[in-house]
Every structure is written in structure tokens, then in C-alpha cells.
């Protein structure tokens, strides 16, 4: 396949993948990061993403799916533009992570793995994100926010909502 012309990815990402498969002693080593970067751009691992990644690495789609289903960050359905991941593991739980998670649920009217109707936010309860000494902590996509209280929730949501610049339906 001529990935230059047929790629579903942006030219930048396609170029990055070309570099990625050349970087390792074995092409297949690019698989896990490639899936994550693809998801970052497309939003989730659609059939088309799986097909192109399989093609680029030179393995079957089934093989790609078999690997992809192992990793908790990889998803097969779209999330919100801003995916809010609230850690409720021990260090965060001790410092009010469940109260924080509840407040997000109240403000967004969605539960675990829910997506708001306008597609701006999704919410997820996650395991330890490596910010235990600054608990409770969350990640919005890849950005960390730490030492939070439930009262910080409206401000965080407003901040991200402002970033969408009305580009998201109903935002």
C-alpha cells in the first residue's frame, strides 16, 4: 500500500509512523505506541485505524486487535474531546478522590465511561496515574491536575469548555 496517498492519518502522523517503524530492531515494536498515537488523532481505534496499522506493521488485523485489547488506555469507541480520568486508587481515595469523582458526575451528568451529549467531555474512573503524593489527581487527556477538591471541578470544566471555542456542537 502506498501509505502516502491512502493513509487515514494526517501527513504529519503518517510521517511519524514511517519513522517509528524504522526506529526499532523489529518493526512490530512500533505497534503499541502507534495505536496510542493513532487514537490521539482519530479519537479511538476504528476499523480503519486497525486496518491501516496492521498494514503498516505487516501483521493481521486480528493480531492488532489481540494486542490492543490488552491495554487499558486504548478504546474502540469515541470518548469526549476532553477525557477526564479520575484516579480513585488508594492514595487518592484517602484524600477524597471519590468525592471528586462524584462531583464530576454531578456536573457532567454522566457516569463512569460516560460521554456528554455534545461530545465535549467524557469521564472515567482510573487506576493510579503516578501522582500519589499530589493526591487527589486527575488527567484530562494527558494533562495532570493535582491536589484537587470537589470545589475545583467547575473551574476545571469551564477552562476546558472555553478551549473548545464553540467548535463542538452545543458547546
Amino acid at each position: 500500500m502506498n501509505t502516502e496517498t491512502m493513509s487515514i492519518f494526517s501527513p504529519q502522523l503518517a510521517a511519524r509512523f514511517d519513522a517509528l517503524v524504522a526506529k526499532y530492531p523489529v518493526k512490530r515494536s512500533a505497534l503499541v505506541p502507534m495505536l496510542l498515537y493513532a487514537q490521539d488523532e482519530i479519537g479511538y481505534l476504528s476499523d480503519a485505524v486497525i486496518a491501516e496499522v496492521a498494514e503498516r506493521i505487516g501483521i493481521t488485523q486480528l493480531d492488532v486487535r489481540n494486542v490492543a485489547t490488552y491495554y487499558s488506555m486504548l478504546r474502540f469507541k469515541p470518548a469526549g474531546k476532553y477525557n477526564i480520568q479520575v484516579c480513585t486508587n488508594i492514595s487518592c481515595m484517602l484524600r477524597g478522590a471519590y468525592e471528586l469523582f462524584e462531583r464530576f458526575q454531578e456536573e457532567l451528568h454522566v457516569g463512569h465511561k460516560g460521554v456528554t451529549p455534545d461530545g465535549t467531555f467524557s469521564l472515567e474512573e482510573v487506576e493510579c496515574i503516578g501522582a500519589c503524593c499530589w493526591a487527589p489527581a486527575i488527567q484530562v487527556n494527558y494533562a495532570f491536575h493535582d491536589e484537587l477538591t470537589p470545589n475545583d471541578v467547575p473551574k476545571i470544566l469551564a477552562e476546558y469548555k472555553a478551549k473548545t471555542n464553540g467548535s463542538v456542537k452545543n458547546a
Binding site: 493510579c128 503516578g130 501522582a131
Partner: peptide, 10 residues
């Protein structure tokens, strides 16, 4: 670094 309670490598 994924053991709950651990964030030093961060």
C-alpha cells in the same frame, strides 16, 4: 511506574 502509592520516577 504503576504501583499505587508510587510517583518518584515521575
Amino acid at each position: 511506574e504503576s504501583e499505587p502509592g508510587t510517583c518518584k520516577d515521575h
